[in-house]
Write a protein that binds this DNA or RNA. Structure first.
Length: 297
DNA sequence: AATGGCGCCTGAACGC
DNA sequence: TGCGTTCAGGCGCCAT
């Protein structure tokens, strides 16, 4: 299930599509949100560098900025824009280079819901559960992209978050919320990127019981938690993400983090820190794993 | 305003 | 063997 590390690994694996030009696009079964653009309008647009914000990927698509285009009649009506992608629960964004892309485009599978064919290959969103999204926006600062990103907290690796002021802001979000800390992490309001796997592991790393109300966590422990989130997410990116079920990166490679997960998915096993027994509970209808021996309220 | 809960989806795993 | 049930969870929406 793609969380921030999986999305970041995907982004890094998709650099090859930058500079390619759109030949065709096709949408499969409808996703929860309509793409918001007609595929005919995309032909000839050039792919820029994929960017990430939280668990979203932004792919800019622009017109060639040649003198001919600039003087072409009606060109100003089509100002370019980009696609905001989300992988949902089961989404994979894979690049099929060259002729392999042409062949893949000719034979879409039942779960291929967005196929962007370019002169350099095919960018394909495969998503069996269809919780994912691919949405057109004129820019990141325009609707709908702006609204979709508006509620996101700070990026875990934003240098600003490491400053005194950034840490204080994180502490203040916790201090102002009565939600259980595990659920606050999932909300992305204090920091984005920690989904169900990494929220459990970060709380173990910080020795905090996941049921603790956010406002009951001292500023000192909050700053430790922030570091733990950064540590766990950073390790996961290095490991290529987690492949619990069907996650793959842009080359179809699986991630290895789950082999070294601290507590996630390890119910009944011994805690590697205190030899307590890792326990599974449910918070907000989602599984949480933690060690009652060394994680404190 | 903040918070908890539900529904969207489908494949895998499980039980009878 | 084959059917039905349960589970996985990111996120938008709704009720409180």
């Amino acid at each position: 299930m793609p969380e921030l590390p999986e999305v970041e690994v995907t982004r890094r694996s998709l650099t090859a599509c930058a500079g390619c030009r759109v030949l065709k696009m096709r949408f499969g079964k409808p996703l929860r949100r309509p793409p918001g653009i007609a595929v005919e309008e995309l032909q000839g647009l050039q792919l820029g560098l994929m960017q990430r914000r939280g668990k979203y990927l932004w792919l800019p698509l622009r017109h060639q900025s040649s003198a001919l285009d600039a003087s072409a009649a009606g060109e100003s009506e089509r100002s370019g824009g980009g696609f905001l992608w989300h992988l949902g629960m089961s989404g994979k964004l894979v690049w099929h280079p060259g002729e392999a892309g042409q062949a893949a485009f000719a034979q879409p599978g039942p779960h291929d819901h967005a196929d962007l064919l370019t002169d350099g290959g095919l960018l394909r969103l495969t998503d069996p559960r269809r919780f994912g999204a691919v949405v057109w926006s004129a820019s990141l600062n325009d609707s709908p992209a702006r609204d979709m990103l508006a509620t996101l907290g700070p990026e875990p690796f934003d240098p600003q978050l490491a400053t005194q002021q950034g840490v204080r802001q994180f502490q203040q979000v916790l201090a102002g919320s009565r939600v259980e800390i595990k659920n606050l992490l999932l909300s992305g309001k204090a920091v984005v990127g920690a989904g169900n796997i990494y929220a459990s592991d970060a709380l173990w790393e910080a020795r905090i019981d996941p049921r603790t109300r956010a406002c009951d966590i001292s500023p000192r422990r909050a700053s430790l938690l922030l570091k733990a989130v950064q540590t766990v997410l950073g390790e996961a990116i290095q490991a290529g993400g987690s492949s619990l079920r069907d996650y793959r990166d842009g080359h179809g490679q699986e991630g290895l983090y789950q082999r070294n997960a601290r507590v996630y998915g390890r119910e009944g096993q011994a805690c590697q820190r205190c030899s307590g027994t890792i326990t599974r509970i449910v918070q907000g209808q989602r599984a949480t794993y933690f060690c009652p021996g060394c994680q404190r309220l």
